[in-house]
């Protein structure tokens, strides 16, 4: 008797496992086929996504250089700088330390520090003032401003840091005494209306070989100094005598030594290291 030719007859109990095994095999085949279909689709996705990622990274890396780095990276760094600028507060201070922790920083960088320099005939040239007149100031003029001392951590962009005691005049005090030009053209009020001042300060060594740019907020930060003393002693030539910038809210690259000129300006000033691939803002 054959179950296939005679529908009246049902398979006997003993035969059931055989049919079950056939059904399972058929089902397993379907499951495998289904998995293959899904895998094909998913792996094509994965392939496309991998190709897209590698292509995207290569595309970024091969773009025209904007000041030393591919322009898409430069754009994002500038946006990062704008966001940081918006969130920046001059009320947040860099951590300070006991003066006993201060150490001698390493002399790192001699650009703009040529031999043919006579500190005795040095003057600070200042331009971009509201008065419209440029100034030539002696160190004695700077020292008339209140002397401020702070022990802070100098953080080099290379990754090392060192605690140093700096003393000098606050750049904010300097700007109050010699007010920068305003954007509105109205009389400047450094304390009450700092936002009306032109947004940037450019600083250079006397020979113009090294130059940095600061945003107005960093310039007005109370720990930003026109510095003439380091670790309790007058600055040495190697560390930027007679006057240097100290900017604890920036990396060490902005602590310009042998300050020759300051310019208050509406245009973002050129910056030596920013031209060589680094972030212009470089702020903390």
């Amino acid at each position: 008797m054959n179950p296939e030719t005679d529908p009246e007859i049902t398979p006997v109990e003993a035969e059931a496992p055989v049919f079950q095994a056939v059904a399972d095999e058929k089902n397993d085949g379907e499951i495998e086929a289904q998995m293959r279909r899904m895998s094909r689709r998913s792996f094509l996705w994965a392939l496309a996504a991998s190709a897209g990622t590698v292509g995207g990274l290569k595309w970024i890396g091969s773009r025209r250089a904007d000041d030393g780095i591919p322009w898409p990276l430069r754009r994002v760094l500038d946006v990062n700088g704008d966001i940081a600028r918006d969130l920046f507060s001059t009320a947040r201070l860099a951590p300070t330390f006991p003066a006993s922790k201060a150490r001698e920083p390493r002399v790192n960088g001699d650009i703009g520090m040529g031999e043919d320099f006579d500190p005795a005939s040095w003057n600070l040239n200042v331009s971009g003032l509201h008065s419209g007149e440029d100034l030539r100031l002696s160190l004695a003029e700077i020292k008339k401003l209140p002397r401020v001392e702070a022990t802070t951590e100098l953080k080099c962009i290379e990754g090392w840091s060192v605690i140093v005691t700096w003393a000098g005049a606050q750049l904010a005090d300097f700007m109050a005494k010699y007010p920068p030009a305003t954007q509105s053209g109205n009389a400047p009020d450094v304390q009450k209306k700092p936002d009306d001042l032109v947004p940037y300060v450019g600083a250079q060594t006397p020979d113009g070989a090294y130059f940095v740019g600061l945003d107005r907020e960093a310039a007005l930060h109370p720990q930003t100094l026109l510095c003439y003393e380091m670790n309790g002693k007058p600055l040495t030539l190697a560390h930027g005598a007679p006057l240097r910038l100290v900017t604890p809210v920036k990396y060490g690259i902005k602590y310009l030594k042998r300050l020759g000129s300051l310019e208050f300006t509406a245009r973002r000033p050129e910056d030596y290291w920013a031209q060589r691939g680094y972030d212009w803002y470089s702020g903390h």
């Binding site: 940081a84 951590p95 953080k155 990754g159």
Partner: peptide, 27 residues
């Protein structure tokens, strides 16, 4: 990245261990 701006909200930046500053510890 922002050791001054975040010093108030990231307490480990004010640590000092074996002569290392909070910034150095973070690194």
């Amino acid at each position: 990245y922002k050791p001054v701006q975040t010093a108030g909200i990231l307490p480990f930046l004010s640590l000092s261990l074996w002569g290392a500053t909070g910034y150095e510890i973070s690194r």
